[in-house]
């Protein structure tokens, strides 16, 4: 989780990930951000995130992203 938070902070400086807003549903991250993030996550955790995983529920919060990575074996 710490590693994930570090990646997120590096990629999106100035974004508070713990302010209670849903990252996708509340428009904090756009589709361009998500695509950049997926590339980083695939590399860092040796996972393979597919189009099927790109649903708001998997990216709305740090814990949701973390769960996705764990589910994919990262």
């Amino acid at each position: 989780m710490d590693r994930l938070e570090k990646i997120m902070t590096q990629l999106f400086p100035g974004v508070d990930f713990n302010d209670g807003r849903a990252l996708i549903d509340d428009g904090v991250l756009t589709s361009l951000d998500i695509v950049m993030l997926v590339g980083e996550l695939n590399d860092a955790f040796s996972v393979s995130i597919t189009v099927d995983d790109l649903v708001p529920e998997n990216f709305n919060s740090l814990s949701a992203i973390n769960e996705l990575i764990v589910r994919l074996g990262g």
Binding site: L11, S31, L32, V35, M36, V38, G39, E40, N42, D43, I49, T50, V51, L54
Partner: peptide, 30 residues
């Protein structure tokens, strides 16, 4: 957009660029 951005050919190039560091690897796919 998502199928393209997660396609293997684009991500192979992006991975190579990311190894070199800098922003190009990060920006290539989007």
């Amino acid at each position: 957009f998502y199928p393209l951005a997660l396609s293997k050919p684009l991500n192979r190039v992006a991975k190579r660029l990311r190894r070199g560091g800098g922003r190009s690897g990060r920006l290539f796919v989007p």
